[in-house]
Simulated scan of single mutants.
Amino acid sequence: MAQMEQQLEQHVPQMAISASTQELAALIDAHLGALRSPSPAWRVGDSPISGRGVFAARNIEKGEELFREHTLLVGPTAHRGRNLRTCIHCYHQPPGESEESALCSAGCGLPVCPDCAPSERHAVECQLFRKWQPKHLSIIEPRALRILSVVRCFFLSEPQRQLLYAMQANTDRYYMREVQRAAECFEHFPRDPDMLEYFYRTVCAFNTNAFESRCHIDGQEVVTRALFPLAGLLNHQCTPNAAHHFEDGETIVVTATERIPAGAEITMSYTKLLWSTLARKIFLGMTKHFMCQCPRCQDPTFLRLILSEGVAVAVAASAGAGVAAAAAAVAAQLLAWSCRQSPIANTRNRTSRRVATTRCHLSALPALRCNILPILARRTHRAGARHRDTVCVRVCVCV
């Protein structure tokens, strides 16, 4: 296990944090503004789980709202397959049917509705994108749209920039690709090293702390990636004592799911609560760069649930050996978990660029369907592998 943790962590150093815990707490208070309660139920402190965390300042009752927070930075996720014809400010649908009809008439290449187009908020972003000269003005370019949330760091106030630099930002060799892909969409994207470093720092902060904020507008689900500095401080536990929901695309509300005694750390889950231990470990290791050691992950009885499993995963890849080794090491650790009540099902298939195809092939494996293999497929392909990669899964599920 220790060897796998080293493999996951050796290539993801953390950028220097420019503020102490006390300074960070003061910056968060200023960020919350009127949303900060005169006597909040929480406080920011050093965490035994990881770095900084949020703790109960008094006894907190189940169902009590802990805090609500507006985003520091937000922008479209621009995932392929989602409707990109969404206003970048209000998230309503611009009139028309084509992508071109949704684009700003001034030529910035961003989708915007008629109500938001003349706003001051759009004017500054529009001017900046026009200065960079988008290459495509008849389609919505996902790569340029996704970088918008990062570019908005330009328009932060000085205290907000200090808060951004006070947030944890894990580096990853893949994160710079987001900036590089966006640069390919413009004729004159910035080349200044300091500016690119600022972009990269913001991308790292996003990928370390951001939430996918979801809301429904005009009858469709809108997904944004949003940076909430206070909510982002909540550390992970697989049996958390708090949960969150989004009031709109730019506001998060955190609520206690059980009674939290004064002094206890407030935690949330970074994964789906019903995911298997293998699913959670692989997801956290490959996307958050840490291995959870919470009581649930250490309990071979799955907190005495009837469901139990023994899993072996091996990844043979022509590239991305580090990712493959890490995934195999996670699975090897779980081999000690056993089930004596049901037979073992086996399957072997090639990974695919299409996650839906992988789900279909593994439809007979309810414990892993939609959880493990999509993650493995994405990460191995990002590491340069192709259809030669294979994933072998052995699953045992109690019935």
Rank of each mutant, 00 (worst) to 15 (best):
G51N: 01
G285T: 04
A26M: 05
L35A: 09
S119A: 13
R177L: 14
I252P: 00
V54Q: 00
T208M: 14
E9F: 11
T208G: 03
M195L: 11
G232A: 15
R43G: 05
L156Y: 07
P95I: 04
L24R: 02
L35W: 09
N346A: 15
C396Y: 08
Q160V: 10
A279K: 01
R121I: 06
G107N: 11
Q22L: 09
A30T: 08
C90W: 03
C396M: 09
W337K: 12
A377M: 01
L278K: 03
A314G: 13
F55K: 00
G384D: 07
A169P: 03
D29A: 15
N349K: 02
I282C: 01
V124P: 09
A312N: 09
E247D: 12
L362K: 02
R259S: 14
I282E: 06
H289L: 08
C360G: 05
V151R: 07
C238E: 04
T257A: 05
H31V: 15
R146P: 07
L227W: 01
A332Q: 01
T21H: 00
H136D: 14
A226M: 06
F199I: 10
N59R: 14
F154L: 10
P300A: 10
A166T: 01
H136G: 09
T277V: 04
A377I: 03
F206E: 02
V315M: 06
F199S: 02
T77H: 01
A56H: 00
V112G: 00
I147Y: 06
H244V: 05
F199E: 03
H381P: 03
S342A: 12
R382C: 06
R340V: 05
V54L: 00
L334A: 03
Q333S: 15
T171S: 04
A385S: 14
T347M: 10
V315T: 11
H70I: 14
R354W: 08
A2P: 10
Q162T: 14
K281V: 09
V355P: 02
I282N: 01
E125R: 11
P134H: 08
P261C: 07
Q341T: 11
R130H: 13
H136P: 12
M291I: 12
T224N: 15
H70P: 12
C396P: 01
L148T: 08
S213D: 09
P343L: 06
L8H: 00
L230H: 00
W337H: 15
W132K: 14
A356Y: 07
V311G: 04
P13S: 06
T380H: 02
K131T: 15
R296Q: 14
M15W: 04
A316Y: 11
G63M: 06
A312C: 13
A183W: 05
A328W: 06
R379F: 07
C104I: 04
E100K: 13
R259T: 15
V112F: 00
A123F: 11
G384Y: 10
P229I: 10
R296F: 11
R52V: 05
I266F: 04
F67G: 01
F211L: 10
T287Y: 09
P13K: 06
R353V: 14
L365H: 12
H122G: 04
R296E: 13
M291S: 08
L145R: 03
R353F: 09
M4L: 11
E187F: 13
